[in-house]
């Protein structure tokens, strides 16, 4: 059982490294709009999400209303509900109410991606491992960025920008190679995402991802329905 936790930690290391570089940028931005190092770190520790937090500090900076804050967080983060439903289908029987209450804190795009790519059922310890190391990366990156934003050489921080995407490719490509249905869904989703980036530019990037993924998955579900055996 202990090995589940360690496996979670090891799967979380690329996420933590990616988070470290992304949240570094968040820390710099938070300080630049007048938020203290402590508050910036607290925001990261309690929210664990990049787009929502970035939009959140913009609202704080201009003194927006709480209603606006709620609506913005809802629209940007509603994708986590979809991910939570998906993950709920592959939880181990050890996942009691208390474990669900705790682990739901850590449902992010990246943690979801890695967890849902696992062949086994998800145990609480596995999820805690992956969430713990990722959250450490996220919060410490924020604190470092807020404290010493400009110390990292630009060549290093630029190169670190790709780390998360490299990990995503490592998750997508092996199954896309094995299964034609996954390959087609992945290509369709990428093409739709490209359309949003260059054509329908009014759509925010968070929404573009959701719409692209939903279209591609609906097509996949209609054309290549999944039987019990290959889940």
């Amino acid at each position: 059982m202990k090995s589940d936790f360690l496996r979670g930690i090891s799967h979380g290391i690329p996420i933590a490294l990616g988070y470290l570089s992304v949240s570094f940028g968040f820390g710099i931005k938070a300080v630049s709009v007048g938020i203290s190092i402590l508050w910036a770190s607290l925001i990261s520790a309690t929210n664990l999400t990049s787009a929502g937090q970035t939009a959140g500090i913009d609202i704080i900076a201009v003194g927006g209303t709480l209603i606006e804050m709620i609506l913005v967080q809802l629209t940007i983060n509603i994708r986590y509900s979809l991910m939570a439903i998906s993950l709920s289908q592959k939880l181990d029987k050890n996942f009691t109410l208390l474990h669900r209450l705790v682990a739901s804190y850590g449902i992010t795009d990246e943690i979801f991606g890695v967890c849902s790519a696992q062949k086994e059922k998800l145990t609480p310890l596995y999820m805690y491992g992956i969430i713990l190391i990722s959250a450490i990366g996220w919060v410490s990156g924020t604190a470092l960025g807020a404290t010493a934003g400009q110390l990292l050489p630009e060549s290093v921080s630029n190169a670190l920008g790709i780390v998360l995407y490299g990990m995503f490719m490592a998750i997508i490509i092996p199954p896309a190679r094995r299964q034609k249905s996954v390959l087609i869904v992945v290509i369709l989703s990428a093409l739709t995402s490209i359309l949003f980036k260059y054509l329908f530019t009014a759509v925010s990037s968070g929404f573009a991802v959701i719409i692209s993924a939903v279209i591609a998955s609906v097509v996949g579900a209609i054309v290549f329905p999944v039987g019990e055996e290959n889940e």
Binding site: S86, D109, A117, F168, I172, V186, A213
Partner: peptide, 8 residues
């Protein structure tokens, strides 16, 4: 399909 589509 949704996780692969989201990551893509």
């Amino acid at each position: 399909y949704i996780p692969y589509a989201v990551l893509s």
